[in-house]
């Protein structure tokens, strides 16, 4: 096995672990807010590593490919970067929107030791 394969295995393994942990966290935690923690953080992190693996693969293939095939790999890497930026911008905002909607629609955080939103409402 060459270096690029080993690097890809490491990146994909990290991504796979966090994606699975995020999905399992949806079932392990008791309420919406704690589930959001697992879902947004772990899956965003996992997807970042997957995208980094794809970018590494694209750069490697670019150096190996012949001149006519090379532009396709530039497009691949550039578009992966755009997709990654979109995910990084939208994921925390979406999580925040869900949390706010859940709190305003009256879902209480389970097993909470402190809840400052109660005094405001």
């Amino acid at each position: 096995m060459d270096a690029i394969t080993i690097a890809m295995i490491v990146l994909i393994a990290i991504s796979a672990i966090f994606v699975l942990l995020g999905a399992i966290g949806l079932h392990r935690f008791p309420d919406v807010y704690t589930r959001l923690h697992a879902a947004t953080k772990a899956t965003t992190f996992g997807t970042i590593f997957l995208a980094v693996a794809v970018i590494a693969h694209g750069v490697y293939s670019y150096t190996k490919a012949g001149a006519p095939d090379q532009p396709a790999y530039i497009v691949l890497v550039a578009h992966t970067i755009v997709a990654l930026i979109m995910l990084l911008l939208t994921n925390p905002t979406g999580a925040h929107a869900i949390a706010r909607a859940a709190r305003r629609s009256g879902i209480e955080p389970e097993r909470a030791v402190i809840d400052d939103t109660r005094e405001v409402r």
């Binding site: 704690t34 992190f45 097993r111 402190i114 939103t117």
Partner: peptide
């Protein structure tokens, strides 16, 4: 901080040890 956050979440998913709350 993000890497740290994910190790923290991983730890809590595996052990289930949480003490949640909403602070201002």
């Amino acid at each position: 901080a993000m890497a740290e956050a994910n190790l923290d979440v991983a730890y809590r998913v595996i052990t289930g040890r949480i003490r949640p709350g909403i602070v201002r």
